[in-house]
């Protein structure tokens, strides 16, 4: 008969948040998402033609891509397209953001949201063929051939992406700040200029960045809507992929990936910096 109480079994604290296997799945997800991209980037530095056996480190394929006139033209066109659509989409989204957030719910609000988000709800291919036929009619009737058509098509689907962070930012901003400004003798314009605008600026920049990235990424709409000679970088790439793979495509993809990472990082920094 022991005269002391037996030692308790070894115990670990019980973690209510833990679920078995979930942690491994999350890491698996992370690896699954990044491994293909990292391997792709890795082979862009391959000396040889192969995208599967690595021989030696080199920037050869970056040089080849940079010297390729087709790539150069496509890159310039893509950047121009993205820049223009971003400007138009961000202006429209900023105005819409101001109109839909600094007020009580209003008649027609659901309609406005539905229209602004429409490009997100329709499969891209449908938008693409629709835009193709619509522009076809306009081109036939007016005889105009213009880069503007492509810019307009991109602006449409950039608006909802630019609108998202702008609206989120405005909704986080207490309406009181405008009231304070008005209380301190600022006219509506001055209140916008000195209070609302500087406070919403991070949202506008974030929205512009998303719009830029989204325009730069687009394949389907550019593929179908672009006029003769208007080859964007993704359209050039999809043509290249049909011909067989060389590390040149890896190199271009890696650069695109890098640009996206930089822009999206900025976006995240601007959007989540203030929130704890």
């Amino acid at each position: 008969m022991p005269d002391t109480v037996a030692l308790p079994p070894r115990s670990r604290p019980f973690d209510v948040r833990y679920m078995p296997g979930f942690t491994s799945m999350a890491w698996l997800c992370l690896i699954g998402l990044y491994a293909p991209l990292l391997i792709m980037a890795f082979f862009s530095f391959n000396e040889s033609r192969s995208v599967t056996t690595f021989t030696d480190f080199s920037f050869r394929w970056y040089q080849i891509a940079a010297d390729n006139a087709g790539v150069k033209d496509a890159t310039i066109l893509s950047l121009k397209l993205a820049a223009l659509s971003t400007v138009f989409a961000t202006i429209a989204a900023t105005m819409a953001g101001l109109a839909t957030t600094r007020t009580r719910s209003f008649k027609g609000q659901a309609f406005v949201f539905a229209v602004i988000n429409q490009p997100l709800m329709i499969p891209e291919i449908v938008t693409a063929v629709g835009t193709l036929t619509f522009f076809g009619i306009i081109k036939q009737v007016t005889g105009i051939q213009s880069f503007g058509f492509l810019v307009l098509a991109h602006t449409v689907f950039c608006i909802p992406f630019a609108y998202m962070p702008i609206r989120a930012r405005l909704e986080d901003m207490d309406l009181t700040f405008e009231h304070v400004a008005a209380d301190l003798y600022a006219s509506p314009w001055k209140a916008f200029r000195y209070v609302t605008f500087p406070m919403m600026l991070p949202g506008i920049i974030a929205g512009a960045m998303l719009a830029f990235v989204i325009s730069l990424d687009d394949v389907i709409i550019s593929l179908l809507v672009a006029g003769a000679g208007e080859t964007t970088l993704p359209v050039w790439m999809i043509g290249q992929l049909r011909r067989g793979l060389t590390p040149e495509v890896n190199a271009i993809s890696t650069v695109l990936l890098g640009v996206t990472i930089i822009f999206v990082s900025f976006f995240f920094f601007l959007t989540f910096r203030k929130r704890k």
Binding site: D174, T176, F177, H179, V180, A181, A182, D183, L184, Y185, A186, S187, P188, A191, Y194, V195, P198, M199
Partner: peptide
């Protein structure tokens, strides 16, 4: 309108402009 009234308000949660310094806030009006 509020900006033409010689009346000022201290708001419940202060509502200090986060993008300005203390002095800028005080000097705003």
């Amino acid at each position: 309108p509020p900006f033409q009234r010689p009346v000022n308000t201290v708001f419940q949660n202060y509502a200090l402009f986060p993008h300005m310094t203390v002095a800028d806030n005080i000097g705003f009006g």
